[in-house]
Design a binder for these strands. Structure first.
Length: 558
RNA sequence: GCGGGCGUAGUUCAAUGGUAGAACGGUAGCCUUCCAAGCUACACACGAGGGUUCGAUUCCCUCCGCCCGCUCCA
């Protein structure tokens, strides 16, 4: 899956993100925090542009969706009703032989005979730890407080290690010994033996792995929601959770939103916000984080129309990704099979992107039926039904939910945009690498950079600053006058700025050759007040009248 | 959570039981008429804590973080 080349690419992207201020590790000066990331000056612009565009597409360009911003903290009852409290904390058990982990509630009960074993590594004395410690200090000349071997306390190796195997009724100790041998061999135990006379029968036990009969470890609870306390006093009564998804507030407030927005079904509620999950294993840069941001739409439809809306939203969302620079060809549409779907789902599409570290989910589009409204109506005792004026009937709406990960999409955009080009200098023949982020202009953090060709020519600087000030209220622009012009172009390539605007001598002295401007208008010889417009992707340059810049740029970045 | 690998400027890499160098990058100045030019100066690192030692970036332990493979994933 993760080829060395892909790993190298990912490392470069991570380094670029830090170097140019897109993404930093959270709490970095304290050694970081697993699964949390900060967005720097450019990252926050990129992320904000992405969210703003989603928000605009949902709530401004459509008549059938309204916006919403729910709180992160909600009454604990919400999480009981939604099913999160019950299903978002899984007791897991580990097979002691294979180290594989299983959900404790999914272990198949089995019956048979249990053979306990005991193993020891020959103990050198009553207090082995002290002896080894003394030996170590004499031989190595360093003092130690505690020994570990692969995170196992050395001392524990001198304690008898218990193990047990279950075998079906009728099978003997031979098959149990086979498993036990594997167990003890893996741990370097030379001496182990069955506990004499201690075999016993078990009926429908879940303490052993059905696949191999090996004893399972103690169940451990994995809390996938982050627990917190509301109020200054920590008590059982004040427990709630940081929301693991933004969706629930929209379901819970369905009635209020409906009452105030004069909407009829089908209509949607859109929200962008943070969510929190205690991911067991955060990994792949920002991809799997414990704190992350979602863009969620709950689109409520008439009963029975969920499937067709599911397909409509699939198309809508694919088109949207194209508009932010992720081509359709790079998105894999996974029709989630029923056995893999969440229990409430009546149909789910996963939109997956080809990240360097593998094909991974960006967005899930789920037909949740009326599960959520049903749960909250029952739990709260408040009616959440919709009154259909046409048919004069009351019913619970079904919902189709396109739920996108903001951070994941930002990461996909960074991966998709990252490019390295080998450039050959025509004069010297030297080859060099150009790093460029080919962002779609509408989400680029900086839309255009304004450069005076030379900074020690006041007449160029004055015009450049003037253009900068003119454009600044209209769109995010940068001004740079340090270093040679080529270097300034490359710096801007590296952060994905689509346009460079250079004020040169032709700006004040008049154009030397007649040409066609970027807007298509002709530019005559001697025409003043034009500038060089340099394009990020092609590095091509053309001229454009200063007066045409605002309109031209706004068209290109909208 | 398990197994393996790793941790020295922003990046890539050195050196060392006596508190660290370079290149590129960055900042400032000079210079420069369109793609990382040149000159000068400056700033910036041993992930954290503990132990051994006269002295630790170096040896030992622990923790944290990153990468890879499992596992997990509403």
């Amino acid at each position: 899956m993760a080829e060395p080349v892909a790993v190298a690419k990912m490392d470069k992207i991570v380094a670029l993100c830090k170097r140019r201020g897109f993404i930093f590790q959270s709490s970095e000066i304290y050694g970081g925090l697993n699964g949390a990331w900060d967005y720097g000056p450019l990252g926050v612009e990129l992320k904000r542009n992405l969210k703003d565009y989603w928000w605009k597409c949902m709530t401004q360009l459509r008549d059938d969706i309204v916006g919403f911003d729910g709180s992160i903290l909600m009454n604990r009852a919400v999480w009981k009703a939604s099913g999160h409290e019950a299903t978002f904390s899984d007791p897991m058990v580990e097979c002691l032989l294979t180290k594989k982990r299983y959900r404790a509630d999914q272990i198949e009960p089995q019956s048979g005979t249990v053979f306990p074993f005991e193993g020891i590594i020959e103990a050198p004395g009553a207090d082995a730890h002290e002896e080894v410690k003394k030996l170590w200090e004499t031989e190595v000349g360093a003092s130690v407080t505690k020994f570990t071997v692969n995170s196992t306390s050395l001392l524990s190796l001198f304690k008898p290690l218990s193990f047990a195997v279950i075998v079906p009724e009728g099978k003997g100790i031979e098959s149990a010994t086979k498993i036990a041998r594997q167990f003890y061999d893996a741990r370097g135990y030379k001496n182990y033996k069955p506990v004499v006379g201690e075999k016993y029968s078990e009926l429908a036990t879940t303490k052993f792995n059905p696949e191999n009969g090996s004893m399972l470890g103690e169940p451990r609870v994995f809390n996938l929601m982050l627990k917190t306390y509301v109020g200054a006093v920590e008590s059982e009564d004040s427990i709630t959770y940081l929301r693991p998804e933004t969706a629930q507030a929209m379901f819970v407030q369905f009635k209020n939103v409906l009452d105030v927005s004069q909407k009829k079904l089908p209509f949607g509620i859109a929200q962008i916000g943070k969510a929190f999950r205690n991911e067991i294993n955060p990994r792949n840069f920002t991809f799997r984080s414990r704190e992350f941001e979602q863009m969620e739409l709950e689109f409520f439809v008439k009963p029975g129309t969920g499937p067709e809306w599911l397909d409509k939203w699939l198309e809508e969302r694919l088109a949207w990704y194209e508009q932010v620079g992720i081509p359709r060809a790079k998105i894999h549409i996974l029709t989630v099979p029923e056995k893999d779907r969440a229990f409430y789902s009546q149909g789910t599409y996963d939109l997956e992107y080809e990240f360097p570290f593998g094909i991974q989910e960006l967005e899930g589009i789920a037909h949740r039926g009326n599960y959520d409204l049903t749960q909250h109506q029952n739990a709260s005792g408040k009616p959440l039904e919709y009154f259909d004026e046409e048919t004069k009937t009351k019913y619970l709406a079904e919902v189709v939910e396109p739920s996108a990960g903001v951070d994941r999409t930002v990461l996909a955009i960074l991966c998709e945009g990252y490019d390295e080009e080998t450039i050959k200098d025509e004069e010297s023949g030297k080859e060099e690498t150009r790093v460029v982020l080919r962002f779609a202009p509408r989400i680029a953090p900086i839309k255009a950079a304004i450069f005076p060709l030379l900074k020690n020519k006041p007449e160029l600087v004055a015009i450049a600053k003037d253009i900068y000030k003119t454009l600044q209220p209209l769109l995010k622009v940068a001004y740079a006058d340090t270093a040679a012009i080529g270097r300034r172009y490359r710096r801007m390539d590296e952060v994905g700025t689509p346009f460079g605007i250079t004020i040169d001598f032709e700006t004040i002295e008049g154009t030397k050759e007649a040409c066609t401007s970027a807007t298509g208008k002709p530019i005559a010889v001697g025409e003043k007040d034009t500038v060089t417009l340099r394009h990020r992707d092609s590095m091509k340059q053309e001229r454009i009248a200063i007066a045409d810049l605002p309109a031209y740029l706004l068209t290109k970045v909208s």
